[in-house]
Computed example of a mutant assay.
Amino acid sequence: LTHRLVAQKSTICADENPAYDGLAFHYDLCRVNHSQEYCSIDGTTNNLAESFFARFRRMIMGVYHKMGNNYMMHYANETAWREDFRYQSDKDKFDNVLKRCLKARPSRDLTGYWQGNKKPTAKFGLESLCLEASNDNQYLAVA
């Protein structure tokens, strides 16, 4: 999943969780040990990711109440947009969304939703690597 969603030669900032060890071979991996420091001497921090996930959890509890994993990319894109533009005025946010809507092509995931066109359940981990080219790239480009 990381190889599908993270560009090659990207820098990934993470904490000391051993789950990230395998990424060091493919990406520039910077670590911060939160038991010793808030951010490393060279400025490495993963606070942007922690802020994103805190906002995402609040959306689940306060806005949506239930999220299916088949539309998780849409929810994640909305959360990222809210995180990126949280300091802009409501007018600027509206203009930004309107420009993106006018630029985007019709969604194959949402067109005909009420007529029964439902997106299949998302696959994670190794199972996700077996998927054919998905429509997610369109939403990543627009986001």
Rank of each mutant, 00 (worst) to 15 (best):
R55Q: 12
R55I: 10
F56Y: 14
F56C: 08
F56N: 04
F56I: 03
R57Q: 13
R57L: 07
R57D: 14
R58Q: 14
R58N: 14
M59Q: 12
M59H: 04
M59C: 15
I60D: 07
I60K: 15
M61V: 12
M61K: 08
G62F: 03
G62H: 03
G62L: 00
G62P: 02
V63Y: 04
Y64H: 15
Y64V: 04
Y64Q: 05
Y64C: 08
H65A: 13
H65F: 14
H65R: 14
K66G: 05
K66T: 13
M67W: 00
M67C: 14
G68H: 10
G68Q: 13
N69E: 13
N69Q: 14
N69P: 14
N70L: 07
N70Y: 11
Y71L: 10
Y71G: 01
Y71I: 10
M72T: 06
M72S: 14
M72H: 09
M72A: 14
M72F: 11
M73W: 10
M73L: 12
M73T: 10
M73K: 07
H74I: 09
H74E: 09
Y75I: 01
Y75R: 04
Y75S: 05
Y75Q: 03
N77R: 08
N77C: 13
N77V: 03
E78S: 04
E78T: 02
E78C: 06
T79P: 00
T79V: 10
T79Y: 00
T79Q: 06
A80G: 04
A80Y: 00
A80W: 02
A80D: 04
W81Y: 15
R82W: 00
E83A: 02
E83H: 09
D84N: 12
D84G: 04
D84E: 11
D84I: 02
D84Q: 08
F85G: 00
F85M: 04
Y87H: 11
Y87N: 13
Y87D: 15
Y87A: 12
Y87R: 11
Q88K: 10
Q88S: 08
Q88N: 06
S89I: 01
D90R: 06
D90Y: 01
D90A: 08
D90F: 08
D90C: 00
K91Y: 05
K91P: 02
D92Q: 09
D92S: 07
D92M: 02
K93N: 09
K93T: 01
D95M: 02
D95V: 06
D95I: 01
N96W: 01
N96G: 01
N96M: 02
V97W: 00
V97H: 05
